[in-house]
């Protein structure tokens, strides 16, 4: 796998406060990778270090083969950056701004095609300050990809979206990754979003990567206890176990056949995630 982002032992201190305590990440080209974690876990700090906006305290970082602290303008041209809640260029027209910022790149996308792809054709002539929250966010994504980046950073992109806008946004990101092979690194504190969108997810808790992997690997790695329920002597029995399969096997042996009312409930990813955050906190 060709690597887009590689991070080893990344540390960040603000004065005495340790915000990142040795983060390791490996993101492949074309991957949609989410950095998931509660607020204050260090997600934004991590992404800002990768974007070259912050200098790290220690560790090795390589983004598209370059140390962000020594990133040139040519390197920057290969990145697309969508930060949290922009309010910039309020007086510009949406299409005007897209065309203007596209000029900085060698091979920018066509502003009209981009607006169409993001469902903003009707807003092309509108002042940026008059766009709705969702429209503004889509414009931000358009501005992030106008220069055909190889790697797109999205910092909490769907905060404040209604479910419909969120779903459309997810489709857009999937399409970008599938059609153009863009690598996407997205931060979120919403587990459902990570589960829906990401090929792989790293959970950042208290400045450390607690778990990293595909959604099912994640579920396995943070396996919380399963509940096994069955009926015996007319009463409901519950057993909490980390190995429900073994329990079921033993029950079948004891009953010498089907177990009445057998029910095994594995915790959802969300429950796992919450228990993980709880465990670390």
């Amino acid at each position: 796998m060709d690597t887009a982002v590689s991070v080893h032992g990344l540390r960040m201190n603000y004065g005495a406060a340790e915000v990142l305590r040795g983060v390791d990440l490996e993101i492949g080209r074309g991957e949609i990778f989410t950095l998931l974690g509660p607020n204050g876990a260090g997600k934004t700090t991590t992404i800002e270090i990768l974007e070259g906006f912050r200098n790290r305290s220690a560790g090795e970082v390589s983004v598209l083969g370059v140390d962000p602290e020594r990133g040139t303008e040519a390197w920057r041209a290969r990145l697309g950056i969508v930060l949290q809640s922009w309010r910039d260029h309020p007086r510009w027209g949406a299409r005007d701004l897209l065309a203007h910022l596209g000029e900085f790149y060698d091979d920018p996308r066509d502003p009209d095609e981009l607006l169409a792809a993001l469902g903003l054709t009707a807003q092309a002539g509108q002042r940026v300050s008059r766009l709705s929250g969702g429209q503004r966010r889509r414009l931000d994504v358009a501005l992030g990809i106008v220069g055909r980046p190889e790697l797109l950073f999205l910092d909490e992109p769907t905060t404040g979206f209604d479910p419909e806008a969120r779903r459309e946004f997810h489709l857009l990101i999937e399409k970008l990754a599938a059609d153009e092979g863009i690598t996407v690194l997205l931060t979120t504190h919403d587990l459902a979003e990570a589960e829906k969108l990401a090929h792989r997810t790293a959970i950042l808790v208290g400045g450390e990567i607690a778990v990293c992997g595909t959604p099912s690997e994640l579920a396995e790695a943070v396996q919380a206890q399963s509940h096994v329920r069955w009926l015996e002597d007319g009463r409901e029995r519950v057993l909490t176990t980390s190995d429900p399969s073994q329990v079921a096997w033993e029950l079948h042996g004891r009953f010498q056949g089907p177990v009445p009312g057998l029910e095994i409930r594995r915790p959802s990813l969300e429950e796992n995630y919450l228990s993980l955050i709880g465990r670390a906190a």
Partner: peptide, 15 residues
């Protein structure tokens, strides 16, 4: 421009 993020936007762009 700093407060609205215009300066930051241009920082994310080469040149």
């Amino acid at each position: 421009d700093r407060e609205e993020g215009t300066l930051l936007r241009l920082r994310t762009i080469p040149g």
